[in-house]
Nucleic acid binder design. Sequence first.
DNA 1: TGTCATCCGTTATAGACAGCATGTC
DNA 2: CTATAACGGATGACA
Length: 723
Amino acid sequence: MRLEELGLDPRIVGKLAEEGIEELYPPQEQAIGPALEGKNLVLAVPTASGKSLVGYLAILQAVLRGGKALYIVPLKALASEKSEDLDRFRDLGIKVLESTGDFDEVDAKLSMYDVVVATSEKADSLLRHRARWLENLSVVVADEVHLINDPDRGPTMEVTLVKFRTFNPTAQIIALSATIKNASELAEWLDATLIESEWRPVPLKTGVYAEGEVFFTDNTRRKVAEEDDGVHALAKDAMSSGGQCLVFVNTRKSSESLAASLGRVVKGTEEFRGDDLAKLARRLVGDQDEPTTIGNKLGKCIKSGCAFHHAGLTNPQRKLVESSFKKGLLRCIVATPTLAAGINLPARTVLVRDVRRFDSNMGYTTIPVFEIKQMCGRAGRPKYDKSGEAIIVAKDEEERSLLLETYLLGENENIYSKLGTEPAIRSHVLALIATKAASSLDDLTDFFDRTFLSHQTDITYLNDTIEGVVGFLREEKMIHEDEPLRATTFGRLVSDTYIDPKSATIIRDGISRYRQGKTFGLLHLLTSVPDMPPLYLRQADYEWVEEFASNVSPQLLLEPPSDLSKYEDYLSEIKTAKLVDDWISEVPENDISQAFGIGPGDIRNKMDVAEWLVHATARISELFSKEAAQDVRELRTRIRYGIKPELLELVKLSGVGRIRARAMYDRNIRTIEDLRNTSYDRLKQIPTIGEAVARSIKNQLGQAEKGLVPEVDEGQKSLREYR
DNA sequence: TGTCATCCGTTATAGACAGCATGTC
DNA sequence: CTATAACGGATGACA
């Protein structure tokens, strides 16, 4: 069917034609009717089969008629991917804003935009902050709604959808999901039209390898040279015919070692472009603020044309790997599951080496069918490959048939609401009360009656939990004693800062014991809260952490646990606090990375969490412990930049972070006053400070040189991206 | 005596969302 | 409750 016949606004059709889109894929075509009619929709189709476009089209159509739209995604990386996609329609007059925790935007600014792309947490946060903009929504697209199944983050997605349906019943909900077994249940819950399909734009051939031979699901077979182990032989096969290859493994270590050895395979192919890769590797090292072991390792791998990819890498490193793979320069990536659910990064061949994975709660477990399919779904690049190939690697023939049955011929799992857990209820009940969406127990039960949880199970048992939570919130003075239920200032603050109420009580109690100089105690407070995921306590850590703990114990604000079963948690908290402490003592990144056995990316993530929590702590201390507030605010800046107190002044300048501030300080430029007395010429001589940064600093001091136009500050831009 | 290959027990294990700025009579 | 790759120390072969 031609695009014009679908009832799309001609302007959209024109724009799509420019993009080379003349007709829709079959599932898109099926979905577009109900989508444009404004019906609620559940579209459950494989990854990379173009389900986003359905969302985009509904959004565009609505916006051209004067509506507003929200596009919810599970990952920040996807938020930028989707907002870039939508931004291509800006000549139609559509203004798109990417809103995540990284990009701060005030409510007032929102009104300038037609479409907001946000993570589910950010969407919920906008609701908690009562953003007026949301009242005028006409379309809500929820991408990857199967996130509802996630124990940690699912409840937010679910609650957010219920809120939109409750407060804005006319808004159209478009839920995009991977193929799941109980999509119909989801559709019933949302009063939505269900469209399911297994169709893919590029045909996908799937099979399982064992002992030199791949059995495909279409009953064909293929022999593979057996001289190496399976993965090497398969990768060689894939790449020698000019294709790119994506390998999924279950640990970071494996991804690094496999990438190194697969590099030798890449070197033997025609597509190997050694010079360009060497250039790329050099760029990688040059881009880093501090050279790290993992960066060097990655550089080495990149030189051989095969990179690894996992969350220990920094964001710039990850992006570099992704973009050079897209360009075809890298021939192979060995990745942990980061890439399975992440951004769109297809390859002709996908190899799944591991179908089991270690889980700290459950031991060694099999990976859900749904996840393996997501990995396999990355095979086949639209427009480039005639077909994609995904092969799971088995140990022996017996396992081969098992894997074939369960993963390739078997059904996906159901998704289940995870909203029934106490932490989720605690946090969302408070938010409902704080935003005045609920003022009685009945209001709360009414709300929970509209959830997917309630659609799936009988939730009368929840009433006890809800009452218990309300009791807890009263006791902790987050809501007032009397009816109707109302949040206290404290309660509203907790809801607004988005921390777990439990965390808030720990912080509030701990902060009251703060005395000047107990900086480590503050750090420990931050790391002992449920919002801070604990660092793994290795056997070798035990001794030093224990010793360190006894040294710093006078500074602590919390009693060490008397309960022996919590002792390990306590040590792990101390270890994490020490990590933050090292960071704000300017211990080189690589030393931290080595000592704690984590990657630079992990350090960044941990510090992000710490900064968020220290901010919440600052707000809480303003309420309960004013004496501490100033010190906490200072600590916050130190965590943000990773600096000792002496650099606090210099870092106020935009474009100046830990590295440049330290460079100036060590050259006796220690205050803003010192900077004024430093000439532009001297400034630009300092390593890491070039002409542009020197000029920007002078501008900020009001010492702009004549004839120099103040320009957008490069330093600040890269800093933002980096964080 | 020093060096390297091999064996064998030990060790650690995927990912990633949230807030918000500052000041003054 | 489950497994396994990679590491590191101990051992042994050999010059």
